[in-house]
Write a protein that binds this DNA or RNA. Structure first.
Lengths: 196, 196
DNA sequence: CCGAATTTTCGGATATTTCTGAAATCAAGG
DNA sequence: CCTTGATTTCAGAAATATCCGAAAATTCGG
């Protein structure tokens, strides 16, 4: 691996991590190299740095492109294709989450919905369906939240994340400020939470 | 596969999904079966339902236990070990996230920290370090947020998730209510160094 | 302690994934 | 069009991961 020690260590770790996610080691390494590179790289640059076969790099780049994780950066006077990782790391994470959602969560949701439509025959199936319903509701809740949060600009998002659970406190304040008449009936949901 | 059609469809899909995460297909299927089962199951029950070898199931269960995803449910008068997935699906997700964090994020953080301590020699290394710093900060932000949110009870969490980005609106209100003098200067500083 | 029931370990068979080099395809300049 | 350089495809080799059955270890009731 033809890289300074610092870079090599990062690339190796990142490849290893990648292999624990659906991404394979090589693709992870390729992305790591692009992520820390000072300038856009072409396939040959990557071959040189990682010592992989040319075709393997080509496959890896194709895979990364299919995840929308690369920016094409044509270099004037050079016919080869150059790529770079987006500068904005938040953009990278957003893309990553979007793609995983599209590939894994969405198909799961549609399977769950389909299974929930079926009429259970045995008690066993009835019980299975009720579990599936729980799962479906949870996923809907999470994806709904994510869709909302995805809309925020990065600045706002950081602000929100920094707050952490303190947001819950803000909610308390809001609850008090806008306490509604008939609050008792309304606060049925809150009945279980001692925080009320 | 010795299961009602509904269950089989779910188990197959779940196994497939599992294989896209670090979990292997079989382990995914085993968990799916346990997740929708009406009662705790022993290894033989699983062998019967999935048609796997006894030893493979044993491995799978061991793996799932190492993820803290199973509850042991001893059956009086039966020497075999019975397992069930937790009833509370929120608990399952929390455990899953915790474990992935422990296995993937935490080691990454410590690698990043180590690399950021080193003194860069070349400009190339200097640039790599600045990228690594960005990544480190982002991960810290996310894990910090998660640690906070993890503390909330499920009720509260649901409430918060349901709000989605509307929370940002609540923040606006808060900002207006407690508008600080010199707010402009302050918000600039906050953007660069959240820890200040 | 012994022995039956159960679980785990482990070597190697099987299946899957990854990787390569050669050949095919593509694209731009002459 | 043809040449040259770049990229992609593809079939099989190499490397990994998964899975099984047999044997070893463990556990618990006598």
């Amino acid at each position: 691996m033809n890289l300074p020690a610092l870079c090599e260590a990062f690339v190796l770790h990142f490849g290893e991590m990648g292999s624990r996610w659906g991404i394979n080691r090589t693709v992870g390494q390729i992305y790591a190299v692009l992520f820390i590179a000072e300038r856009p790289l072409c396939a040959d640059d990557i071959v040189e740095r990682l010592g992989l076969s040319r075709s393997n790099v080509s496959m890896g780049l194709k895979e990364l492109q299919s995840w929308n994780l690369l920016r094409r950066r044509p270099m004037p006077g050079d016919r080869r294709e150059f790529f770079a990782a987006p500068d904005d790391i938040y953009a990278i994470v957003r893309t990553l989450v979007d793609e995983r959602k599209k590939r894994e969560i969405d198909p799961t949701l549609s399977v769950l919905r389909e299974l929930l439509m079926r009429t259970p025959v045995t008690p066993e199936e009835r019980h299975a369906q009720s579990r599936l319903k729980d799962m479906h509701e949870l996923i809907e809740l999470l994806t709904g939240w994510y869709a909302e949060v995805q809309k925020l600009e990065t600045e706002r998002l950081i602000q929100l994340l920094s707050l952490g659970s303190k947001v819950a406190k803000v909610l308390d304040i809001k609850d008090h400020l806008f306490a509604l008449p008939g609050g008792k009936a309304k606060s049925k949901a809150a009945a279980n939470s001692p925080g009320a």
